Amino acid sequence: MLNIAVLVSGGGTNLQALIDAQHRGEISGGKITLVLSGKADAFALHRAEKAGIPTEVLLRKSFSAQEEYDRSLLEILSRYEIDLVVLAGFMTIISNHVVRHYENKIINVHPALIPSFCGEGFYGLKVHEAALEKGVKVTGATVHFVNEVCDGGPIILQKAVEVLPGDTPEILQRRVMEQAEWKLLPKAVSLFCEGRIKVADGRATIKED
């Protein structure tokens, strides 16, 4: 059974999707054993506590240097014997040092079909604002491994979501969450824990059952 850490900063809707999937028995081979927040008042912490999951708070501003923060983060992950790190709305920078330490063991969900509307500056509502401004007819979500390039790691899963007339960024954000993010993230986590994701030449492939 692999130990999963979910890193959060806000409301924790993707965390809740993972918790619900775990309760339904949809995450095989792994268990959420830590929720770590970059903000002391994140509502995601209440979700974790309600589910009986241990929590930690690690504030970047508590450290004068990135290296000190990295050491503390890695120490916590090591203490909980974490095998997989899931970024679920985590707004603190993950350094290349941490990424290399957990190579192909950090998963992120992005609210667009990478390589569209991704990279530096594309997060939260900004992604959906850009999609609507461009006039795309289809958007979606992507779950990918994290590497040194922002939103540039191997893609694990993607799901398309239709853009509808009258959509606002908020409406589109909610539809992408409900139809794509909350479905893809638990599935990707389960595939990882089952050992079914293989990464070669910068691409992720999924082994059949």
Rank of each mutant, 00 (worst) to 15 (best):
E49W: 11
L113W: 06
E170F: 08
L77S: 04
V176P: 10
S62N: 15
V6L: 04
I106T: 01
K198T: 15
L164V: 11
Y80A: 11
G202M: 15
S190Y: 08
G29W: 06
V143E: 02
D167R: 10
E133F: 10
L15V: 08
E103V: 13
H144T: 07
F122H: 02
I114H: 00
V138R: 12
K207W: 10
D83W: 01
L45M: 08
N104D: 15
E67F: 04
I206K: 04
I27C: 10
D151Q: 01
Q179M: 10
E67G: 04
Q16D: 08
N104I: 09
K126H: 07
G166Q: 07
S64I: 02
P169Y: 13
V98F: 09
S190R: 06
R196I: 15
E49V: 14
V189K: 02
G135W: 06
A44T: 04
E56H: 14
K134H: 07
R203Y: 14
A180T: 12
I53L: 09
R174V: 07
H23L: 14
Q22C: 01
R79Q: 15
L185W: 02
A21D: 09
E170Q: 13
G25R: 03
S95G: 12
Y69P: 02
I106M: 02
E49G: 12
P169A: 15
H101M: 07
R47F: 07
V57D: 15
